[in-house]
Computed example of a mutant assay.
Amino acid sequence: MLVLACVLALIYPLTTNVALAVFLGWKLLFSSIVQAATLIGRSKTPDFWLQLISAAMSAIVGFVLLRNPACRDCRKRYVRTTPEASSNHRAITEVRSKFG
């Protein structure tokens, strides 16, 4: 099962990146809500402000990941500008043509 997931990630890298961005975004957003909820009424705990800042930063990063996980302009810019991306694209196209 893991091998199949790795092969699919190699064949469809952009879809994999979007799926991971959405998953990590929701995970960070949910964990920041839980962390902030556990801090309610516990202002005497050690490092209260550090934990609160950590929860806020997790929420911000989660929101940024969920805001636009499939940035089409970013993908176009990556494929156009890096030689690694064009060679990877050619290799992926060859693999797709062989298997389907």
Score class of each variant (00 low, 15 high):
70 A>T: 08
63 F>W: 13
93 T>G: 02
70 A>C: 14
71 C>W: 15
67 R>Y: 15
30 F>D: 08
89 H>L: 13
25 G>F: 04
93 T>C: 07
84 E>M: 05
72 R>D: 00
9 A>Q: 03
35 Q>M: 13
20 L>V: 05
76 K>I: 14
35 Q>C: 14
36 A>W: 01
8 L>S: 09
36 A>D: 07
97 S>N: 14
32 S>T: 03
92 I>A: 05
11 I>S: 01
38 T>D: 06
83 P>A: 00
92 I>R: 01
40 I>L: 12
38 T>H: 01
96 R>N: 07
28 L>N: 02
88 N>I: 12
29 L>N: 11
76 K>T: 15
48 F>R: 10
24 L>R: 00
1 M>I: 02
85 A>M: 01
68 N>L: 10
90 R>N: 02
21 A>H: 04
75 R>V: 13
81 T>W: 00
65 L>A: 04
90 R>P: 00
14 L>K: 01
59 A>W: 01
99 F>I: 13
99 F>R: 00
42 R>D: 05
87 S>M: 03
84 E>K: 11
41 G>D: 10
70 A>D: 15
45 T>Q: 15
72 R>H: 12
43 S>Y: 05
22 V>H: 03
41 G>R: 07
74 C>W: 03
58 S>N: 04
95 V>W: 10
34 V>E: 02
90 R>G: 01
76 K>V: 14
80 R>W: 05
50 L>M: 13
22 V>I: 13
47 D>N: 13
100 G>A: 08
75 R>M: 02
63 F>H: 09
8 L>V: 06
15 T>E: 10
71 C>Q: 06
41 G>M: 06
64 V>D: 15
72 R>C: 09
75 R>W: 10
46 P>V: 15
33 I>C: 08
55 A>H: 03
82 T>D: 10
5 A>N: 08
32 S>E: 08
15 T>I: 06
